[in-house]
Design a protein around this nucleic acid. Structure first.
Lengths: 131, 131
DNA sequence: TTCTGTGCAAATCTTTTGCATGGCA
DNA sequence: TGCCATGCAAAAGATTTGCACAGAA
């Protein structure tokens, strides 16, 4: 486990207040979209520009500090962590982290060895099934 | 199994030459992006407009005739079929359909019952691992 | 004949780029 | 101090909208 400051210090990127605030926002929300990051970072950092958000999102992805979580509706980003699975609701676009079942892990590892894998399950969440 | 014509006939959408050609292109490629569809449909249908492609992609998704396949790089679409899994290469963005392992199916069904599920495995394909 | 679909143009939204200035190491 | 990062403005790219005409049912 690393702190956000350590993640930056161990990368080729410089530690700037903007980057710290962007990463804290992603960490706090679990999964954050560009607009969510921009709107919330602007509260603490009114002068920040959208271009800075985009540049940093790209740089942080290249350093593997954050990982895109893609849904059909909008892309979001999370702090890169151990392999885990996502459940994404097709209706409300909610993302839940789920335990990466070790049996599934074994099955996939057999077929796709040495693959840096991520598992996504797209479905309809319980709340939306009720509606 | 349904033909493309039947898919349209059973929907609320009218059957037009443009829609048939768009769907045939998606079927032929397995997974097609907006630009791929546009570039190839234009050969048969030089007057087609990008707006028509977008409007139809949205309409066909609402009718559940096509399903988005999302990758971190670009969105693509496929004809809606029985649940199956995708392997998407993080490097070259290639998409492979893979058999939906019945053991994985059972594990997911236990945790997410009655969920219209899709399985995605993001990793690095064999070709890109060599490089 | 009716009403949806098409195609064009314009509008809007999203993301990237260039450049002068500011700030971390 | 040197070089990378920021922020602005503009450019480029992607997607949506409005409207008149064409075409499926």
């Amino acid at each position: 486990m690393h702190t956000i400051k350590e993640l930056l210090a161990n990368s080729t990127l410089k530690t700037t207040p903007q980057r710290l605030v962007i990463l804290k926002e992603i960490e706090k929300r679990g999964h954050a979209s560009i607009e969510e990051i921009y709107e919330n970072v602007k509260i603490l950092f009114p002068t920040i520009s959208l271009a800075t958000i985009y540049k940093n999102i790209n740089a942080l992805q290249e350093e593997n500090i954050i990982t895109p979580v893609c849904s059909p509706k909008k892309s979001r980003y999370e702090i890169t962590k151990e392999p885990h699975a996502h459940f994404i609701c097709k209706e409300c676009d909610k993302i839940e982290d789920i335990i990466f079942d070790e049996n599934i892990d074994k099955i996939i590892e057999t077929k796709y060895p040495n693959s840096q894998k991520e598992l996504y399950i797209y479905g309809v969440c319980k709340e939306c099934q009720k509606g």
